[in-house]
Nucleic acid binder design. Structure first.
Lengths: 185, 185, 185, 185
DNA sequence: AATGAATGAGACTTCATTCAT
DNA sequence: TATGAATGAAGTCTCATTCAT
């Protein structure tokens, strides 16, 4: 029983990691199952022992990522804000980004065709909503003139940073983040 | 003669616009030539009178976009900075974005496989380099503490705005841009 | 328009005939699309210009057969019975069988998986129901002891004849039919 | 030893029965070895300890059926005809049919691809030849006008009955058989 | 120039079979 | 003996591209 479970899990892990990398590098459609099998050094058919289809493989990647995102934001909300909610949010985002680079790249890139795919994607977005709300409230309470717009600008800046970090090697995201936070002291 | 030429150009224009829309909506791989021909109301075979291949059609879209980008930035560099180079850059970017939404969406989305594609894409980037440089110099000359980092943050904020504008209908990009510029007064 | 329509119809006809033959000879599952395309001397992909799937090709065969069956039985019911309803039914059945040997073989053989397939098959059966009813009534009115059972036996004999005719070359179905009819004088 | 042998035989029996059922229900091609292994609650790999291949499993079913058919006909030929050879043949056929419904269904349904398969099938047919010959002689000796044709009609009627019995639940085959026999008194 | 029929390489997927344990 | 993980040939289907008219 457990003998097979181990092999299963190993294979599943290899498939998921390879697929995530290739999907994020080349896109979902441009990545063939053969591509994945060659890179993962498994047989072409093995994928279908564990995933019903290419689509389902993608969904599984998203679902697992969704869980990680959920955990990350749950942790964030649990902690009391160290100095400011903004700093906490930004630092967490950067930390998560570094720890889950491939998945973040995938999220940015992927065009979901299926309804289920879009649903999972929107669920992932919902996860962050509470944390964003916390930041938005922080801005509202800070007495800043246009708190809603400020929130929009802040999230734009963060997402822009993320985008550049994912696109360029050696992007000094920590420094840029620090500079960003200095604007909100 | 000229009558045929006119019709030809019209067809080409329709194809390019339809293809751009579909590529940006569904992705390059997920859009078939038949799709485009149906939407553009051009017969399938005729597509190949105008474009050698699907790849070439994509390249043509990028090349024409590249020309527009080049013109836009040329115009930008020609004008004297009204108040500040930053404001000029941001306003131009927003204006261009609004005028070329589909193309910008395509640029964000598309995964270029071919070398030629990547080359065109990098050329487009180079177009903006001069304008970015102008902004960077403005920041350096302004005596701000970390001008290079500031530039990175500024471009991140701009690209984040662009990203959110393209993703959401009704995104108040002018207001967010105004707020952003207020930080650099 | 008509120029292409002709080619379309020719191709469709070739595909349908070849597929019917192969399905009835080897069974649906054991017949590959490649098989059909090779025998029909068309390209593999052409089938998919005209039929969405192998399943749909099968359905189309059944539907067209269904129409022919319907016409045949309509004709049968229109005519007044020459001597007896039984003779009329048997002769018509034999005539139809000879004219549509491949389709009859297919009907006998095929295992329908899909609901739609089974539906078409049951529709075909319904077509014959009225004609069978006419025969049944004839038997009831004839004062024969067990008319319902007689009908069952008669239809069994007919179907057995059909089965043997389809299985063996040179089966003297006309003579067997004549002999059968002599039992009901 | 014997304990293992027993278990082995039990497993083989379960596999054969399950396979026969599935083959006759869904067809040979549409039934996968995995299907059989799941229904028979035998592990996939173990199947191949008992049968070299799917084809060979089918052959084994046919061979065992062939033996049963042979025994049945041997028994039939051993007995003296009670009243008539025809009655004896029909009653035996019905009895065998009821006792081996699944196998009979399989025989009707299956399209044999391999030579060996067809050979076994033709052997099964040969088994019945002697019994059929007895019936044919009975008809010839009875002074009936067209004995050969009468035989053909009789066997057609029987096979038609069999066909209807296998296709419909609650088919009153005994009654139909009785009625058939009444024609030959 | 214009049409859509035709082609076939390559994608996804299944499944009989083998292999490692 | 028994298990199910792993393999890869072969099937269905898609679609960029060519061809005949």
């Amino acid at each position: 029983m457990s003998k097979f479970q181990l092999k299963r899990d190993q294979s599943i892990q290899v498939i998921l990691e390879t697929a995530m990398r290739l999907f994020s590098e080349k896109g979902f459609e441009a990545t063939s199952i053969r591509n994945i099998s060659l890179e993962a050094e498994i047989s072409l058919g093995l994928m279908y022992n564990y995933f019903e289809s290419k689509e389902e493989l993608m969904l599984e990647i998203l679902k697992r990522g969704s869980v990680i995102v959920k955990e990350a934001f749950a942790e964030l909300l649990k902690e009391p804000a160290p100095h400011s909610a903004i700093e906490q949010y930004v630092r967490h985002t950067v930390k998560f980004l570094k720890a889950n680079k491939a998945f973040c790249k995938l999220l940015q890139t992927v065009h979901l065709q299926s309804d289920e795919g879009r649903q999972v994607q929107s669920e992932i977005k919902k996860e962050s909503a509470a944390a964003e709300e916390k930041v938005r409230h922080h801005l509202i309470n800070s007495g800043i003139p246009f708190p809603e717009l400020e929130a929009k600008l802040l999230f734009a800046s963060i997402d822009g940073m993320v985008q550049h970090y994912l696109a360029n090697d050696n992007y000094p995201i920590d420094d840029v983040a620090t500079l960003l936070l200095m604007k909100y002291r």
